[in-house]
Amino acid sequence: MNSNIWLLTFADAISIATTLILASLGAILTERSGVINLGVEGMLLMGAVTGFLVADSSGSLWLALFVAVLVGVVLSSVHAALTVGLRANQIVSGLAMVIFATGLSQFIGKPIEGDPLPVLIRPIDFGALSDIPFFGPVVFGHDVFTYLTWVLVAAASFYMHRTRPGLLLRATGDAPATVDAQGGSVARIRWAHTVVGGALMTFAGAWYMFARSAAWNQSATTNGIGWIALALVVFASWRPLRAIGGAVLFGFSLQVPFTLQAEQIRVLPPTIVAMFPYLITLAVLVVLSTPRARRLLGAPKMLGQPFVRDER
């Protein structure tokens, strides 16, 4: 065992983190408006499988990513229609979305199961820069979308905390009645952010497919990453910038089992090691639930509550 392995694991963790960051950024935007979308896991799967199918038949990565985003828009519109429009229970709607999307992705993905990827997202070639010790693989070893994701997080943070629409967004999650009284449309803001959030989630799934997977393999493709992204939202206390650190931590815990297997290090049986990402996520949730931590967190106050003007 040498330190190089762990350096590469860390670089891989940063790469996996891209999916987690994109998905949890989508969830943060959605939840900040007061809507919970528990469907993340299903959205990732649908993004991955539709991306694969489109790339398979067209050979175009860009078209694949575009269609994946469209699928996210459609699926999250259904969620928004049910929860914002019809005021249905957000939790049950999100779960229904997971079940529906899981089934649908397996159904339409059946013919391509196990096929090689038609296109790949490859890291950018930085030439000699990648050979710099430590910084090389960690900073200069990624694909264009990973860097764009970092920019996107900064932009989302700026949007949420420094612009007027961002202020309205946060207000909609905390005090929708106030937004309504000021003449803002709570329904429109919630729709818009649920849909944009959903698009980010399916894009995250498509990216994961082309950048990190070997083949489409039913629900094993994402293997619970969507749920970890939801826990990450709490970890990030609904702030985009803080999601990056958490995503790298969770990404590391997801990558370690693979590293151990590849290096044939058997400290523990692989099935036991495979539990760790979920146990670590759970442990983080527990720590964040202590009264002391909760004071510092600040979840949107009206999260999960439908807004009904007459009942104000």
Binding site: A81, L86, S93, A96, V98, F100, T102, G103
Partner: peptide, 22 residues
């Protein structure tokens, strides 16, 4: 026909039942 169609139907039933609540 892939068995997953059963899961698709389950999810769809639940989504429509939710809409029906209205």
């Amino acid at each position: 026909v892939p068995i997953a169609i059963a899961v698709v139907l389950q999810g769809a039933v639940l989504l429509f039942a939710l809409g029906g609540e209205l």
